[in-house]
């Protein structure tokens, strides 16, 4: 579903990504972990071209988005993103947040977009907030709306960029619960997170990044019981205290 071939990303002199090769199959739940500054956010942002790689190729759903004049806007519709800081549209109601892109970008009838929006709001448990504005919601509720907004694009892939990192501790679980529910579906999920419990529960595969490289990858069992790299061990020992 996503394929990255020899991808490099430089910010000035800083190498955010070094020769990344990665293949994610359809329906796979991939969790990306690593210390801050390890390049994991850059990695996931490259997958829908919010970040342009310096070199290398990225294929999403069979389309090379790094190609000249690639239909990036089209590809992004099938690879929805959930941001750390929610990024809901503050001038639109919750319902409008969910329907704006389906109507304007995908050309779906308003009524139909609203029906599916309500369905997804029900899924994240927020139907009663449909006509509120984002500023009237708690952080956890806003992030659940952001997930529903992503789902209402009917994407094949959903990218989570540290979805719980900006939340107060008591709101983290409600968002994780929604994501765990989502993982039962056939959708491809890529999740950058520090929530190791979630990784263990949901991931088909975990990749550990450090200094712009994929240091180690494997199943959760492999990762938490028997990591091979010293860097992985060091990171896990810090985070799993």
């Amino acid at each position: 579903m996503i394929k990255m071939v020899n991808v490099d990303k430089q910010f000035g002199k800083l190498w955010a990504l070094k020769n990344i090769n990665l293949e994610i199959s359809a329906g796979e739940k991939l969790v990306v972990i690593g210390p801050s500054g390890s390049g994991k956010s850059t990695l996931i942002r490259c997958m829908n071209y919010l970040e342009k790689p310096t070199s290398g190729q990225i294929f999403v759903d069979g389309i090379e988005i790094t190609a000249h004049k690639a239909p990036v806007a089209k590809v992004r519709q099938s690879a929805a993103m959930v941001f750390q800081s929610f990024n809901l549209y503050p001038h639109k109601t919750v319902l409008e947040n969910l329907t704006l892109a389906p109507i304007k970008v995908q050309g779906i009838e308003k009524k139909q977009a609203e029906e599916s929006a309500m369905k997804y709001l029900e899924r994240v448990g927020l139907t009663e907030k449909a006509h509120n504005y984002p500023s009237q919601l708690s952080g956890g509720q806003q992030q659940r709306v952001a997930i529903a907004r992503a789902l209402n694009m009917h994407p094949k892939i959903i990218l989570f960029d540290e979805p719980t990192s900006a939340l107060d501790p008591e709101m983290i679980q409600e968002v994780l619960d929604v994501m765990v529910g989502l993982s039962k579906d056939n959708i491809t999920m890529v999740v950058v997170t520090h929530e190791m419990g979630f990784a263990r529960q949901v991931a088909d595969r975990i990749i550990f990044m450090d200094e712009g490289e994929i240091v180690e990858q494997g199943t959760p069992e492999h990762f938490f019981s028997n990591p091979s790299s010293e860097r992985t061990k060091l990171f896990l020992s810090k985070i799993l205290r």
Binding site: N48, L50, A73, K74, R76, Q77, A80, M81, F83, N87, L88, Y89, L100, A101, K104, V105, Q106, R149, M153
Partner: peptide, 8 residues
Amino acid sequence: EAAYSQGF
């Protein structure tokens, strides 16, 4: 970024 990510 949110708008771009939705294909706008």
